[in-house]
Write a protein that binds this DNA or RNA. Sequence first.
DNA 1: ATCCAGGACGCTG
DNA 2: CAGCGTCATGGA
Length: 277
Amino acid sequence: MITLIGTEPLDLRLTLVDSAQCFRWTQIGDCFAAAFEGGPVLLRQSGRGIEAEGAFEVDALRRYLDLDRDYGAVALEYAHIPAARRAVELFPGLRVMNQPPWEALVCFILSANNNVSRIRGLTDALCRRLGRRWEWEGAALYGFPSPEALAACGEPVLRALKVGYRAPFLIETARRVVEGFPLDALRDMPYDEAHRLLVTLPGVGDKVADCVLLFGCGHTSAFPVDVWVARLLREWLGVACTTRAAMARQARALLGENAGLMQQFLFHAARTGAIEL
DNA sequence: ATCCAGGACGCTG
DNA sequence: CAGCGTCATGGA
């Protein structure tokens, strides 16, 4: 059964795939597919709006896609900053998703010193090897591996998937989660406390912690600073700092409560070369 | 061959 | 606290 879940502006390809905030959606024809705990979910843009099919609850899916946020208001908030205004204009329909924190954690541990296409390949390999298998009209889809599955799989298995030196990070972090690391409580903690807690996990530094907080915990002020963002902060916003941690602090002070949402627009603008640095 | 990719980590000044 | 080499892997 096909359900219309919303008519708000949302560019599926841009949000689910191209913006590199999530790495596990695959395009099948004009649909985007991924498997979750309840089974496969398919999304499609039609003339009516965003249509969904499969195992989902409308409210949960709307939250996942951040459909309840007014991005027009966010744009206005930063309209006085030329680069920000330009980035928002360039990418209508880009939204910052609310992923399960465990998924964001694993994917962004994989992201360290890695490129987007390879992160996607590794995520897919992880799901194929350790995730639950589903089928949708003949096509195989794989759920995201549980913390238990990852904690128990053994380092050689992960090495064989080519995650490289990140293998022990993944296994140790999975163990910490299985042993009770409060992943689901991060959402309701103050940013500083949640960040301080996350960086105690192996493979998680300042930047990965900010990605987990922004993409998986609803902390819209979290501001991940990678090479692209560091560059654009200097060139576009005049932020002159030495370390990335200091740049993140300054960007948060400058942009406030929704700094992370704006970061995603700026990041994509810089990474795709849509705005010359 | 060298550099780079949504960096983290351990060691040295 | 800041700076630097190292860590797999694959594409440019």
